[in-house]
C-alpha cells in the first residue's frame, strides 16, 4: 500500500505531487476549502490536520467545512453552552476534534462532545495525564449504551486489535511510518513528525518508492526491540501490545497507563467477541 504523505500547506510542494493521498497541516481555519480544492486537483485529500490555538467553543466553525475531512487538535475546550449551541453544525461535519490530555477536564469534555454526536479523541501530550479519567472515557466509548460519536484512539484499537500482533494507534495521529510519511517543504521525507522536527530524513520525494528498503525504515520497524533490549519497565507491561511504550518516559511516575491500556485490550476483546451479535442486530434494524 502506498504511503499517505503528511505535508505543510505549501502549494509549490503540492504541485510536485501526483496521485498521492495527502494530509495537509495548517493552523488556518479559513484555508480548509482552498486546501481541499488545491489538493484534490491532482491528488486526494486524506485529511487536514489543523493544530490551532484558542478554545474549541470559540472556533469559527463553518458550513464551508462540509465534505472536508479534518482532524483538529486544540488544547482548551472553552464554554459548554457556547459549544452546545454550535454542536448541531459540528455534528454534521467530517471533523474529529482532539483535546489535549494535559488538561484533566478535557476527558469530561470529550465525553460531552461524543454524547452530542461530535467525533473526537484524546491528544496525548506530555504532562500529568489523568489516567483514571482516561479509563472512564474508555468505558463510556466502548461500553456506553447511549448513542454517541466515536472517541479515538479507542475506536481504532477496538477495530484493529489482534491479540497476536502489536497494535499501533499512532495512525490516529498520522504518525505511523507504515502508513504515513512526513515531508518538509524541500521534499525531504521523514518517518515521523518527531523525525521531521529533528531534521532526520529517510529519503527524498525523488526516491520515495524505495523507502521501505532504506536502513532507516527497516530500523524503525524494529525500534520496539530497544525497550526489550534495555529491559525497560514497559517491556513487561501486560498492555504493551497496544501502547508499544508510548508513555515510557512517564510510566514510572504515572503508572496508570498500564490500567487504561489493559482495560483497552479487554474492551477490544469484548467487542470483537460480540461482533457476530452486533451484526445480527444491524441486520434486524434493516
Amino acid at each position: 500500500m502506498d504511503h499517505i504523505l503528511v505535508i505543510n500547506h505549501n502549494e509549490s510542494l503540492i504541485s510536485r505531487l501526483r496521485s498521492k493521498a495527502l494530509v495537509v497541516k495548517t493552523s488556518d481555519l479559513f484555508a480548509f476549502r482552498e486546501i481541499a480544492h488545491t489538493v484534490n486537483e491532482f491528488n486526494k485529500l486524506h485529511s487536514i490536520q489543523a493544530v490551532v490555538k484558542g478554545k474549541m467553543s470559540d472556533l469559527p466553525v463553518s458550513e464551508d467545512w462540509g465534505g472536508i475531512p479534518v482532524s483538529l487538535f486544540i488544547r482548551e475546550f472553552g464554554d459548554i453552552r457556547t459549544f452546545i449551541r454550535k454542536s448541531g453544525l459540528w455534528r454534521t461535519l467530517p471533523v474529529r476534534v482532539f483535546l489535549s490530555s494535559a488538561t484533566p477536564e478535557n476527558f469530561t469534555y470529550l465525553q460531552l462532545m461524543a454524547s452530542l454526536g461530535v467525533d473526537c479523541g484524546i491528544w496525548f501530550e506530555d504532562g500529568n495525564t489523568d489516567w483514571q479519567a482516561g479509563a472512564d472515557l474508555l468505558h463510556y466509548a466502548v461500553y456506553g449504551k447511549a448513542p454517541h460519536a466515536s472517541i479515538e484512539p479507542f475506536v481504532y484499537l477496538v477495530d484493529n486489535y489482534k491479540a497476536s500482533e502489536q497494535t499501533d494507534f499512532s495512525s490516529v495521529y498520522f504518525n505511523d511510518p507504515e502508513r504515513y510519511l512526513h515531508v518538509d517543504d524541500q521534499g525531504n521525507v521523514a518517518l515521523s513528525s518527531g523525525d521531521l522536527a529533528r531534521g532526520e530524513f529517510a529519503c527524498t520525494l525523488e526516491n520515495l518508492q524505495d523507502i521501505r528498503e532504506t536502513t532507516a525504515y527497516q530500523e524503525r520497524l524494529n525500534v520496539w526491540q530497544e525497550i526489550f533490549l534495555n529491559s525497560e519497565s514497559c517491556s513487561s507491561c501486560p498492555a504493551w501490545r497496544v501502547c508499544l511504550g508510548k508513555f515510557s518516559k512517564t510510566a514510572a511516575e504515572q503508572p496508570g497507563c498500564k490500567d487504561l491500556f489493559s482495560d483497552m485490550m479487554e474492551a477490544a476483546e469484548f467487542v470483537q467477541s460480540h461482533a457476530s451479535e452486533r451484526r445480527v442486530k444491524e441486520l434486524c434494524r434493516l
Partner: peptide
C-alpha cells in the same frame, strides 16, 4: 509474572 509478560510481548505469535 513480569517475565511472562515480557516474553509474551516479545513473541506475540
Amino acid at each position: 509474572v513480569e517475565l511472562f509478560h515480557y516474553l509474551t510481548n516479545f513473541k506475540m505469535s
